[in-house]
Design a protein around this nucleic acid. Structure first.
Lengths: 203, 203
DNA sequence: ACTTTTGTCAACCAAACGGTTAAATTGTTT
DNA sequence: AAACAATTTAACCGTTTGGTTGACAAAAGT
């Protein structure tokens, strides 16, 4: 009887590490805290992952590979631009509602260690916007879209999708809403963001 | 001869602390590092600010009071909505280009300690969007603006202005630009963001 | 001139940290 | 069941951390 994949000690550690690292970051996380969360001895962390740094990298790569392919898939699909925008914003916002710590975790740790992204870029799943860029330039040239650089549009799409999760506590206070109301706003954004963007770029 | 305000030991400490805290955050910053940056003995930090926590709070409040009034001023001015958006995005992006660590610092530390924002909300300068909200609702009712909740519009304005600074390293890699090109993109956003938003909301 | 207050410093301290070790336990092979 | 390998544990270690101390110097008050 082989142990179910999620209940091996190694997987328990990775899950606990994911939880702690994503909430507290690499520096803020404590090895003892991860061990407690997993309910096992601290030495086990080193037995399976050698060091805090390597355990962190395992968590980070797993998280990155959860977000990156989604981005890639939509950006390099054969859909029309408007469909891409609708599809991406809806899917991404839905996904992040389920994993609210994820984008901030990625962004923070890349800011702390910008060189790390070089390692990731060599991997196959690293996002590119080549196809999207061509599409946008084409449609702008045809006069179907308002003139805008594909890079700026891409930044805008990501900003509108992700920022409300990153700045949640600040925004909640400024617009003076409680948790439930804020979640409702996020829910509405699944369609609101695409409407906003499409209105902005259509002639 | 009274010492110039910026060269007192107390001010030197605060400046050094600002620099280190904003780059590394509360947890990542080291008291010794701040002392070295200020070029004074570590014991002085405690002599003037008692503890790391209190030194941090001094830095944080100063940073917050740098960003908040700007937000407030524009949002509660008598300008028309379009003017507000143009003014705000241009000023904010210009300001953050000069202080690129500031928004991320605020957002990160508020995420780490959400309760802290309660202390800030009691202060006079805490931003509110009341006037802006009324304006938007009014213009939407008049049919001059596309239907949109003021809260969503506000989130969008902030997201488009700030996110490119927070996610700089990630975005730089995905859209495959170097430092100079990315700075150029940010420069363009001083006007690009307002154009984008106004196109999105006008009928 | 001398006393008191304020400011500065090197040395030090206890706690917390990531990481190691050696022994004990469990599982597998023969 | 004996031998071996893999897993788990408590105790431990060296370093780093925020913070303190006590001696000393520079101003300020008298």
């Amino acid at each position: 009887m082989v142990k179910s994949k999620d209940t091996t000690t190694e997987a328990q550690i990775l899950n606990a590490a994911k939880s702690i690292f994503q909430r507290k970051g690499m520096i803020g996380a404590r090895m003892q805290e991860i061990a407690d969360e997993a309910g096992i001895n601290k030495a086990m962390l080193h037995y399976y992952y050698r060091s805090k740094q390597l355990l962190f990298e395992a968590v980070f790569k797993k998280a990155f590979l959860l977000l990156a392919p989604q981005l890639n898939e939509v950006m390099n699909s054969d859909d029309k631009i408007c469909e891409k925008i609708k599809g991406f914003t809806h899917n991404y916002i839905s996904f992040v509602i389920k994993h609210p710590y994820l984008p901030n975790f990625i962004i923070q740790e890349l800011n702390r260690n910008p060189e790390f992204i070089q390692k990731l870029m060599t991997e196959k799943h690293f996002p590119s916007i080549d196809k999207f860029r061509n599409q946008v330039n084409e449609k702008v040239a045809e006069g179907i879209l308002r003139p805008i650089k594909a890079e700026q549009l891409f930044i805008n799409i990501l900003a509108l999708s992700i920022f409300p999760f990153i700045a949640k506590h600040l925004l909640k206070s400024i617009i003076n809403t409680n948790e439930t109301e804020y979640k409702q706003l996020l829910e509405e954004r699944k369609t609101e963001v695409a409407d906003f963007i499409i209105n902005a770029i259509k002639i």
